[in-house]
Amino acid sequence: MGSRKSNAGSAAPAVLLAIVILLLVGSTLYFHIAKTWWFPPAITPVGHEIDQQFFLTLVVTGIVFVLAQLALAWMVFKYRDHGQKAHFTRGNHALEVIWTTATLVIFVGLGALATHAWGQVHFGGVEPGALQVEVTGVQFTWTFRYPGPDGKFGKIVPADIDASVGNPLGLDPNDPAGKDDIVVPDLYVPVNQQIELMIRSQDVIHSFFVRELRIKQDAVPGLIVPIHFRVEQTGDYEITCNQLCGLGHYHMHAMMHVLSQADFEQWEKKQEAQNAQ
C-alpha cells in the first residue's frame, strides 16, 4: 500500500502537529496568566463571588485543557506510523466507568458550586432600605426613573409616550405619584447601599449590562425583571445593550455613576428641585 510506505518514518506531520498544539497551549496559558485582556475589577460582593467561581472553573478546565491537548500531541507523535504494528484493543470497560464518573463529578460539582452566586443575584431578599430604580430600554437609549420623595412610581400610560414633549416613559399627568418622579438618561446610585433595578422595555428586547457589576439582564417588553446589588466603590461605569435590538444596537449606551452617599443626596435634591419648577 503506497500511502503506508510513504508515511513510514516520516515524523514531519507529527512534529508539526505537536508544535502547533504546544503553541496553542502556551499562548492560551500566557494570556490567561498575564491577563492582557481581562475583566475589569468587580465592584460588588456578588461580583467578587462570581470572579472566584470563574477562577475555580478556569483552573479546573485549564488543567483538563492542558492535559487533553498535550495527550493528543503526545499520542500523535508517539504513535505516528514508523512501521510498528497497531496495538489491537476494543476498549476498556473499567476506564470508561472511571472517566465517566470523574467528569460527572467534576462538571456537576462545578455547577453546584456556582448556584450560590446565582442565588445572590436572583433569590436573596431585598433589604427594606433599598433604593429602587426603574430601568427602561427603548431603541436605542436607556432611561432611568426614581420614585422621588414620595417613594412611589407614577402610573405609566403607553398612549402618553412622547419623547419630544419630555415624556419618554409615558407618565400619566393625572397621577400625583408621578409628579415627583425623576427621569434621567444616566444611572446615579449611592455607594454601599442596596440598589434594586426594575428592568423593563418599551419596544423590543434589550439587555442591561455593566461589566463591573458582573450582571446582565434582558429587558423584555411585558415583563419587569428585578435585580439587586450593592456597590462598594464610587466611580463611573459604562452601561451597554447586549441583546440585538435593531440598527442602533451598538450605540445604545449610558453611564452608571456611583456617588458617595452625600453626593448622591445632593444630586437627588438637585433633580427634585428641577422637577418642582
Binding site: 475583566f39 463571588e49 462570581i50 467561581q53 470563574f54 472553573t57 478556569l58 479546573v60 478546565t61 483538563v64 485543557f65 462538571f107 462545578l110 455547577g111 456556582a114 448556584t115 450560590h116 452566586a117 446565582w118 443575584v121 439587555s207 449590562f209 461589566r211 458582573r214 450582571i215 446582565k216 447586549n242 441583546q243
Partner: peptide
C-alpha cells in the same frame, strides 16, 4: 471546555452575548 463556563448561570451573567 469553554462551554463549562457558559453552562453556569452565574458566569453566563457576564459572558452571555
Amino acid at each position: 471546555l469553554s462551554g463549562i463556563f457558559l453552562a453556569q448561570p452565574a458566569l453566563d451573567l457576564y459572558l452571555h452575548d
